[in-house]
Design a protein around this nucleic acid. Sequence first.
DNA 1: CCATTTTTCGAGCAATTGCCCAACCCCTGG
DNA 2: CCAGGGGTTGGGCAATTGCTCGAAAAATGG
Lengths: 321, 321
Amino acid sequence: MDGVSARRTRRDQRLDEAARVAWLYFIAGKTQDEIASDMQLSRQAVQRLVTMAVKEKLIHFQVRHQVASCMELAERLTDRFGLELCEVVPTDPDAPESTAGVAIATANRMERLLNAEAPIVLCVGSGRTMRAAVEEIHGLHRPQHKIVALVGSMAADGHATEYDVVMRLADKIGAQRFPAPVPVQARSIEERKLLQSLSIYRSLLTLREQAKASFLGIAEVAWQAPLHRDGFFSDADLSGLIDQGAIGELTGWAFDEEGRLLDEDYNGKIVSLPLETPPKRLTVLVACGHLKTLPLRAALTGRLANGLITDERTADAILSS
Amino acid sequence: MDGVSARRTRRDQRLDEAARVAWLYFIAGKTQDEIASDMQLSRQAVQRLVTMAVKEKLIHFQVRHQVASCMELAERLTDRFGLELCEVVPTDPDAPESTAGVAIATANRMERLLNAEAPIVLCVGSGRTMRAAVEEIHGLHRPQHKIVALVGSMAADGHATEYDVVMRLADKIGAQRFPAPVPVQARSIEERKLLQSLSIYRSLLTLREQAKASFLGIAEVAWQAPLHRDGFFSDADLSGLIDQGAIGELTGWAFDEEGRLLDEDYNGKIVSLPLETPPKRLTVLVACGHLKTLPLRAALTGRLANGLITDERTADAILSS
DNA sequence: CCATTTTTCGAGCAATTGCCCAACCCCTGG
DNA sequence: CCAGGGGTTGGGCAATTGCTCGAAAAATGG
């Protein structure tokens, strides 16, 4: 009997045993002790065989539930984009563009942070999804915390968005609020500089340095996209952005499909807090729906964020490029 | 929100959580503690969710190895025929009628019994498979044990079988031997009675009463089957048995396809120790190959034995009737 | 054949898991 | 509004499992 075939045989016998043990352990539900006496092995030998069966993939675990695929998608997103937090919720088949699931998941995550007794600073962006998320937060009273805006809630003409996330969240939990009483985009670079010289802006910057995490929406850069429709960006601005390859924006900052921020010529009038690239704290993008796929993929590729809460369909779309 | 749908939703949420937990536990390999803090649940809650996931079949275990199907077949055989011992070994695809695997498995089982220091009595039948099994026994020296024949090893004309299992096994382990120096079948009922009146026969009966277990082969009743070819049964005997519906025999005792022993007219000349029906001790049938399928199924159906060692193909054939 | 290296073994212990129980919550129906 | 009952919770503890380590056995090499 030659060495190789002998070794092979030994190994096969080992695998046979491992498979038997795995069957008895996982399927028949016996304890390792029982199996040990059944097969007259030591308990430790059985333990090793179980480990081997798992390592050698003799035993396969399969979760038969919709969330199983969500978990897998979350893991793949985490790996691919180096995320610190990723949550994928099932897509409601009756309302595939609904933000409900994502909003609840986001609310849960925020609640977890806000549950703390020690005062924390939480930065939030704006948008419908974030607003919906905030609506899902219940029953917390945390006056010690500070909610800070990452982005202004006004257009250059002074009219305010209806989705004022900071105020609503602060209301909900009785926290201190730090909105940004500035437009998303100034009329000119000079105006932007002026606005940024206000002490209020410096306070926001300082607060953000202390922030535990940021949660923000994302938007596509396209005609009739929310920022355009609501008048935050003019036709001319938008036209320029699109020409420059912008496909999405975070708190006003436009980026291309590689997640590279556009330069001063195009992002120069944005008054929102600058994006941290790479993020210095947990920075979670919250979005779902097919319009968000490209912007999300781009932002994650460019490491503009290190967290993501989305739904199954969007997650799948992000990964299948 | 009505009660039913509320409860349903609650349950679904529970199952979602359970699926998440199961995924993290079984697939991601996290500990319950880790999962608990990740999902901010108590450790016990996670434990319950894992249990629920298993109970609700959310998590499915699959052993990807040939022996997995063997284990399942063994379980089904155990359930269906009320067995105390059942072992199914993989069929060698290159030699599907080979008794090698079954012989090794049988040897292992016998070794386990014979390993004991306290003296035991072991009864054995005859046949090629049993002989092969005994050949696989190694390195035991147990002079305190007694090996007892369940069946004679001679034909009525005095010639002995080449498969003398008792002597070979006793040689191997240095045990005391109690062969049955009688034919399988007497020439007449009178001769049978005479043989049974010998003190040797009574000794064997007494020894069997003390036996820990019996291991025996099985044979088909058919033209050119071993018992016929080797001259243990005459053409006339066999013809009668077949007419009476005999399809198999254990230590000479013929039975029909329901596992009912044939009556005195046909089994009246058998000198072998009577079968215990139902077995009063572990009684293991050792056989594989397509010729053995029917006899095995019949014998198990008639509860003529409470143990079985066979191969995958045969096991499958026995069950698919 | 013996020496050396590698693998395997099981005891002992630490970590993890399973389970029981009293306290608690949340319905439901007075 | 309250009382009762089913279900849920987490503490505490026992059972089970995982891991480390030195010893022993087996494979390897001379």
